[in-house]
Design a protein around this nucleic acid. Structure first.
Lengths: 110, 110
DNA sequence: GTCATATTCAACCATCTGGTTGACGATTGC
DNA sequence: GCAATCGTCAACCAGATGGTTGAATATGAC
């Protein structure tokens, strides 16, 4: 699923998912280990990981019976740059600018 | 309502709200004028503006019977900094950006 | 083969979200 | 005063979201 500003921002809007991303900043982790510090079911964490994967913020690789989660920080690039556009007051058409960013960052070149 | 990462990211997850913020980048606007380009009711836009206000991304000031909306880009800072913690995202690829500007301003759509 | 571990799936539920419509209060202009 | 304009409120609706539980699927260990 192609990551978009919609999916990335929506994924980042949940504190559990942001905490998961922070954990993965230190190292890759198995699903069960990701779930351990949270007071919710493994299935709920599995859903959160699905949202993060759909947004491109993590990738999951199955080795044996363990699925490893790996942070993909580049998926934040588009969102980060979009926000930076508000730090400097460019006189540019921001709607088109947003479309430009989507093409550049969300749509891997063939 | 205190702006948080939750409210800011959630507010940014909607394309209508991002478009509104882009419009406000150029100038302050009245609610009716904000709503004009969108194909939805004024009440719907009013709700979106409420979400943006709750997130601190805009402020609204009533002068006469007109309510003016003003961008507050500083509200993005927390979210921006949080993302920077995941890596430095170079600002836009300038070559691609110039090509974009070229298409945008000098090339009428076929 | 059998059992335990790792993870997802399916169904369900409560709540949130983004939209609608119609009524309403506030303000301006004639 | 009266009509028009600006914007919000309230009630409602369909669909998404975030959680649960229990069954199912893989894989590894013995």
């Amino acid at each position: 699923m192609a990551p978009t500003l919609d999916t990335v921002f929506a994924a980042l809007a949940d504190p559990t998912r942001r905490a998961i991303l922070s954990m993965l900043l230190e190292d890759d982790m198995a699903v069960t280990d990701v779930a351990e510090p949270f007071e919710m079911s493994l299935a709920a964490i599995s859903k959160h990981l699905g949202v993060l994967t759909a947004a491109g913020l993590i990738t999951q690789e199955k080795r044996g019976r363990v699925k490893w989660c790996k942070l993909e920080p580049d998926a934040m690039k588009g969102a980060s740059v979009w926000m930076q556009g508000f730090g400097q007051f460019e006189p540019v058409n921001l709607d088109a600018f947003e479309a430009f960013l989507e093409r550049e960052f969300s749509d891997p070149e063939p």
